[in-house]
Design a protein around this nucleic acid. Sequence first.
DNA 1: TCTTGTGATGAGACCGGTCTCAAATCGATT
DNA 2: AATCGATTTGAGACCGGTCTCATCACAAGA
Lengths: 358, 358
Amino acid sequence: MKRPPKNSSITVSDVAREAKVSKATAARVLGGYGRVSQTVHAAVSEAAKALGYRPNELARSMTTGRSGSIGVVVGDIENPFFSLAVRGISDVARLSGINVILANSGEEVEAEKSAIRVLLAKQVDGLIITPAQAGDIAHLREISCPLALLDRALPELDVDTVTVDDRNAALRATRMLTQAGHRRIAYVTAAVLSGDFRGAASSINTSTVRERILGFLEACRAAGIENAERNIHFGSSRSERSHGLLLQMLRSADRPTAILASDSVVALDLFKAIRECGLGIPRDISLVTFHDADWTSVTTPPITVIDQPVYALGKSAAELLIRRLKGDDRSPERIVLPTTIIERMSVGAPLNLPHHQS
Amino acid sequence: MKRPPKNSSITVSDVAREAKVSKATAARVLGGYGRVSQTVHAAVSEAAKALGYRPNELARSMTTGRSGSIGVVVGDIENPFFSLAVRGISDVARLSGINVILANSGEEVEAEKSAIRVLLAKQVDGLIITPAQAGDIAHLREISCPLALLDRALPELDVDTVTVDDRNAALRATRMLTQAGHRRIAYVTAAVLSGDFRGAASSINTSTVRERILGFLEACRAAGIENAERNIHFGSSRSERSHGLLLQMLRSADRPTAILASDSVVALDLFKAIRECGLGIPRDISLVTFHDADWTSVTTPPITVIDQPVYALGKSAAELLIRRLKGDDRSPERIVLPTTIIERMSVGAPLNLPHHQS
DNA sequence: TCTTGTGATGAGACCGGTCTCAAATCGATT
DNA sequence: AATCGATTTGAGACCGGTCTCATCACAAGA
């Protein structure tokens, strides 16, 4: 007849009393610090076991100042890109005995601010953030704990950052398209623009978005394509409205003959829209997307993708952050991970004649 | 020249001193409890703003006993099923000002135990768990805070539970297959069995797995199919090994003519394996899977699926848990959400002759 | 035998909040 | 003017740990 599984919590003092030692001594063995004699150590451990002592991590954090958890703010865990990155983060964190408090920003700055405030109030030891909008980063500046940026760099914010070689990736992908003969190439992204875009790509301050556009434009320019800016479509979300916009684009007389999508979610939407319009890939239109999402290899045709090391992205960000948590204070690092293009069957030569229904 | 963004933290006492009131009074306005006069309230708020006071949630939790966060333990956030459910959970949590600490169990009991221990030490107010293995639930019994089970019920554990009508879903899906004329139908699941399975489905104690198998067997029996148990494949994970096993199954002389997959991850694996074997869907083999993952609608052919309300699953679990957190103590509820079958193109009549390479 | 040093232990302050309880203040009533 | 009740405020304990510092015991060295 054991009754250890009592109802409420057993504290250090309880254990101390049971073991007939002082609270300080009990705390020493329970907390694993200081020096304690063999005998006493055994006695306390036994008392702790008998009572079913469970340390209160909160109280511990209270005095040590460290909470043993990091906050992660991503746009949307539902997006496979983020869930994979989060997986990378939490795997690394677990190895260091750190846990992850997750927050979704829904890609909205206000939600992001609020999430950060909450996380900070919870005394997270560090933060990994995928900044929703690069225009508004005052709140990121004010963060006083270690911070790492995931997937999106902010030039004005000199902190540990892990991104992929977006520009080069976009450049190569676009070049593949131009070399296949395409001249009307669209870049479709979910990002929304703060301020307006008049081709001044360098004014975009979310690195991921800017770099990709820069790469895209560079490849277009190299191929002698003018006004490629016109074919950049922002704000393509999962909504009805934006799907409608895609359909509209695909049905217009001068619809693009090739599209580069910024992530697998918009690509999927695009894929569906293309099919809805009765267009064939790659016959009527070529499609390339960022992120080797699981579905891209099983469609007909399978989609050519820019494979980003997403898990590694999360992993590296977490490693950088944790290293800093451990006291490392070398200057911020900006890691750029390489991407590879996986060529599948979604890129072909454009048809010469504009051509609507198949 | 403002210098509020000081380095270290401003406490209630600091604010009190600045506002020339007692710590107790300052705490009252800062914490939003008790009664304070207009004047003092204003003075304290102002002092707080001037100093840039940020409450320490940890210290608050310390005294109140509530941490304002819940722990969520899922098998694998990378699985779209879980990431969507987590999304549901965190949306609901945010609405209540509660945040989510996430932990992956990797479907392993030991990892689950450890995660729970950590979460509990962090004083989470409640827990939402997708139990990895139903055989080993002693550690779940010992949990003293509110607990809700997600997607998997445990008969012996009388706590709030949200599942889908797995049995009926499996029954209907299997019946669809038998009605199409199939006799050799396999059920492929990622679940691993604790103990061995000799057709005694009722001995499986993870509800999801058991119920689906029961439904599957019932439909088989109704169609006069004997020994359907033989065609249940457990432990199909993302590994090389299990992919090999699938290939082996598909290449055997008496390969199934139809397969029901337990989730979209195994289904995708299966889809690829089927293609690798040069088999056609649904000509050579029919495929139905649980979970309407995004890719299932864009393959050729699109896959018939059992659509589970995954987001709602997470949402409901969180609602149940939070309701309990708020003091509601009615007896545990077991919510069973309905599923619908989305018929697409992956089910057809079986070929009469066993037939290997197309 | 009398230092002196070393390791083990205990007492109690502290972290930053909440909250109880008593004292002080105030207006109104008699 | 004195009393009473209600409201506002302050002092200090408390949550469950960590950690500093003083004390204590014991053994080696002088």
